[in-house]
Design a protein around this nucleic acid. Structure first.
Lengths: 166, 166
DNA sequence: TTGGAATGTCAACAAGGCTGACGTAAGTTC
DNA sequence: GAACTTACGTCAGCCTTGTTGACATTCCAA
């Protein structure tokens, strides 16, 4: 790994200046990344926190509250406030666990799936445009660097999701 | 550009599944990206908003309040709350413009530079580790995709900064 | 049966966004 | 020189989303 095609392993990409550019790239790109869903959400009574919950419930239907807490990295009180509104509005439903009745397994309702689709269509559209413009090789590098930037536990979450474990 | 080594331009990297992975990679990586500075800031009376202000004042010494507003994309009331504490604590100073006396040009004080260094050292350390692990080619792709993800105006800001324009 | 796990909930608080309104100084334009 | 506009500051109030702490319930597991 880390072999490049420019040959010669010049380490110029590790200068503070290059790193600063990377940092700013993350900052500006993240703004774009969240802009489209945010735009859809505003006006509805929801925010980014609802989007995240919906995203991961969609991604892992039947996931438990505890799982979601670990993935989102917030307190249960914070998540609960969000989940409650999603329950009340009929976007998410919770089913008591069959094996362990303390657990609540979370699922999107049809209405929830509709909103999820709207949000992720918008977000994917931007991502797709970026991917297309950058090309597959760049995308590969993009994912590699992002993965290396994650905290180890978060990386596990990510890879777990990536492999479809759950 | 966009030529891949797998040959044949398969468009598999544009599937919804691949895009979803990219989206989650952004989510988890951004958490890592902000984790170290956040850790330093907590306990001090500052937060991420202060970090951002300090970063861009450091990056563009003498920048005006209006410039900063455009870069950060927040309201002046929001920025002002942050800047006021930074003035009061002697981390940032404002000098009245020579040409246009309505403008305030912002500079870090020595104390401000010290905090900036501490924060960006931490952030760069993680970025450097990720870059090193991923290699120069991946870094190139990383930057390309991020740039393509930005909103056009933000991309201008980014490129302006990138080129050192001001 | 008892301890701990999974969950919900109440209350209070903080950071950091936002809008709206208003004020002041200083450029700019007619 | 008057009138308009720009750059900036500030007060007040609101919202979202995060936090801690405390407490209740249900249920699994030893």
């Amino acid at each position: 790994m880390a072999e490049n095609s420019t040959g010669g392993e010049s380490l110029l990409f590790l200068t503070d200046e290059q790193l600063r550019k990377g940092i700013e790239a993350m900052f500006f790109a993240y703004r774009g990344f969240t802009a489209d869903p945010d735009r859809i959400l505003e006006g509805m009574d929801y925010g980014r926190a609802h989007h995240r919950a919906i995203h991961f419930v969609h991604r892992s239907p039947g996931t438990t509250v505890g799982n979601l807490l670990a993935i989102l990295g917030v307190t249960k009180q914070s998540l609960n406030r969000v989940l409650r509104t999603l329950f009340d509005d009929g976007l998410v439903e919770a089913r008591v666990g069959k094996k362990d009745k303390r657990e609540r397994h979370l699922f999107l309702t049809e209405k929830g799936r509709a909103l999820e689709r709207e949000l992720s269509d918008a977000q994917r559209a931007r991502m797709r445009a970026a991917y297309r413009a950058a090309g597959p090789q760049a995308v590969q590098g993009f994912r590699t660097v992002l993965e290396a930037m994650m905290d180890p536990e978060l990386r596990q979450q990510y890879q777990g999701l990536k492999e479809g474990r759950q």
